[in-house]
């Protein structure tokens, strides 16, 4: 660690530092500006252009949101379904990712492109054929059906990113451990898996969000029996004044900050920090 600090200090001249500082400030404004502007609207009665201060303050929009009881159930559904989807996705995809990253087999490249292409097909063109298929399989309106449709969106993340991570684990490290008498499984667990873990973690986060945010397919398969948060929320946001969207963004910011905090603790803590750092 001390070594790294040294190499860093050497490489930065004041000019470069200043330029990068300006770049960072601009980025902060670009990312946070719209969110903050929206967030303030959650407490505002009305805002007349071009004033920099709103006309008045209110809690009115918050009470309107909490009066909607369907929302609570949909958030709970989302929080139950998404973890199931991620775990299933890991079980199905991680072996495939390992194979794609470390082994050679017939159609390996076709496999990777095929998954990619399938993910990029605009879903709206498929509503009718997916509905027909799901009806034929009695999956319409079932939890299993919703899980499958969300699972499909996570496959791309759970194969490509871990595949790259497995591919980048140095072979000679594993061989050295084998030479030292470690079992195959032990080498996999303590070296291969551990070194690929940062990539796998990114894949888990991306898969969770892909499943959590999936709205169109979930509605097609789930409604009216199963609603998840986005299917419920998207419509609300589109139909209410900007202040309601602001309340939502604040409500969502809370778990998000929590998620970032948790992810940071797990990712930074321990050995993983070497490969993947969010400090």
């Amino acid at each position: 660690m001390a070594k790294r600090e040294k190499s860093r200090a050497k490489s930065s001249s004041p000019v470069v530092k200043a330029l990068l500082g300006i770049f960072m400030l601009a980025m902060a404004f670009f990312i946070l500006g719209p969110l903050l502007w929206l967030a303030i609207h959650a407490f505002v009665t009305n805002w007349t252009y071009p004033n920099l201060y709103p006309d008045g303050w209110t809690w009115h929009w918050w009470t309107q949101i909490f009066a909607n009881s369907a929302l609570e159930e949909s958030i709970r559904n989302s929080l139950i379904i998404s973890p199931i989807v991620v775990v299933l996705s890991m079980i199905i995809c991680l072996p495939a990712a390992y194979a794609a990253g470390r082994m050679n087999y017939v159609g390996r490249k076709t496999f990777l492109i095929g998954l990619f292409a399938a993910n990029s097909f605009p879903k709206i063109g498929l509503f009718a054929s997916i509905a027909t298929l799901y009806y034929a399989l009695n999956l319409m309106g079932t939890i299993v059906g919703v899980i499958i449709i969300q699972l499909l969106g996570t496959i791309i993340y759970m194969t490509w990113i871990p595949a790259a991570a497995f591919a980048s684990v140095p072979r000679n490290l594993e061989e050295a451990a084998r030479d030292a008498g470690a079992s195959k499984f032990r080498v996999f667990r303590t070296i291969t898996l551990r070194m690929a873990m940062p990539g796998i973690l990114v894949a888990i986060v991306m898969s969770f969000l892909a499943s959590f945010d999936e709205a169109q397919g979930t509605y097609l398969v789930g409604a009216p029996a199963i609603y998840t948060m986005p299917t419920e929320m998207y419509a609300l946001v589109e139909n209410y004044p900007i202040q309601i969207a602001a309340v939502f963004s604040l409500l969502l910011a809370f778990p998000s900050v929590l998620l970032i905090g948790l992810a940071r603790k797990h990712i930074v803590g321990g050995q993983l920090a070497e490969g993947f750092q969010i400090k």
């Binding site: 709206i124 009718a128 509905a131 009806y135 409604a223 009216p224 419509a235 589109e238 139909n239």
Partner: peptide
Amino acid sequence: DLHGTHDAQETAKITAAFATRKDAG
């Protein structure tokens, strides 16, 4: 379905249910 956000899905669903002789709910 607020504001008819999912009209496309619902139309596809009812038509598909008709074609497969299922109840669209």
